[in-house]
Simulated assay, not measured.
Amino acid sequence: MRLGVIADVHGNLPALEAVLASLAGLSVDAVVNLGDCASGPLWPAETVRLLRASKMSHVRGNHDRALDAASPEELGASDSFAWRDLDAEARGWLAALPFEIEIGKARCFHASPIDDETYLLDEIDSGRLVAARPQAVEALIGAAGHAVVLCGHSHQPRLLRLANGTVVVNPGSVGNPAYHATEPSIHVSESGAPHARFAVVTMTGAVAVEHHAVAYDWEHAARRAEANGRADWAHALRSGLVPTSR
């Protein structure tokens, strides 16, 4: 089985369109979306419509869950923008997505098996995300024995093979290549490039993983972010880095 893996679209419609076009030429049997579909100052409603129209499986991300709020007043800027752009039916669809699913030999969730905000393949070191120690990853996953574990959330393309043979993959972010976060402590995630990321995992015999970085019109996305008052997003979309002024 060849499985296309996407995550963390964050309302970036042109990036999603470019990724889906690339996947169409890669002979995948199925596609899974690991969540955080809409949050951000770009095209939340249009992105959700495309995701729902596409033949793929989905899990719920922490930002998808946040959009189930009764009002946008207590949400952060990115979630608040998406909440206002989406209608109640679309927000309900996001909130109702499953926490975890299995596809073939793959266990799929947004962040980690314990919750949708704990990094699995990453840890914070000196205010930056770095690759997590294998022992820490093993402790979070447990001994379920899946051939493949798929996660997103950190926006960092990662690949780790554990001692028991389990292959853990983060495809990186389709639509948001860098961000600044304050929880669980202040840190940044930077991919270092503006490309839209995804992965293809082949689960026939030995597990094979292909990480892809797709060019798209990120200048168009950056101008959209600027028009919606988010210069920080515009900088990240153009560079894959957070603004140095932070």
Rank of each mutant, 00 (worst) to 15 (best):
A82E: 03
A82M: 11
A82T: 10
A82K: 06
W83C: 01
R84M: 10
D85V: 04
L86D: 02
D87G: 02
D87W: 07
E89W: 12
E89N: 11
A90R: 13
R91E: 08
R91Y: 07
G92L: 06
G92N: 12
W93P: 06
A95P: 09
A96N: 14
P98Y: 11
P98K: 12
P98F: 14
E102I: 13
E102L: 10
G104F: 07
R107Y: 12
F109E: 04
H110F: 03
A111Q: 03
S112T: 05
P113E: 05
I114C: 13
D116S: 07
E117R: 12
T118R: 12
T118C: 10
Y119T: 03
D122N: 13
E123D: 11
V130R: 15
V130E: 08
A131M: 14
Q135R: 15
A136P: 03
V137N: 00
V137Y: 04
E138S: 13
E138V: 12
A143N: 15
A144D: 14
G145Y: 10
H146E: 13
V148T: 04
V148M: 05
V149I: 11
V149F: 04
L150K: 07
H153C: 01
S154Y: 03
Q156M: 14
P157M: 02
P157G: 06
P157Q: 01
R158T: 00
L160V: 02
L160P: 01
L162Y: 04
A163S: 15
V168M: 02
N170T: 01
S173G: 02
S173F: 06
P177K: 04
P177C: 00
A178C: 05
A178G: 05
Y179D: 01
H180V: 09
T182R: 15
E183L: 13
S185F: 10
V188Y: 00
V188I: 08
S189V: 07
S191K: 02
S191P: 01
G192I: 04
A193T: 11
H195W: 12
H195R: 11
R197G: 00
F198N: 06
F198W: 14
F198Q: 06
A199T: 11
A199S: 14
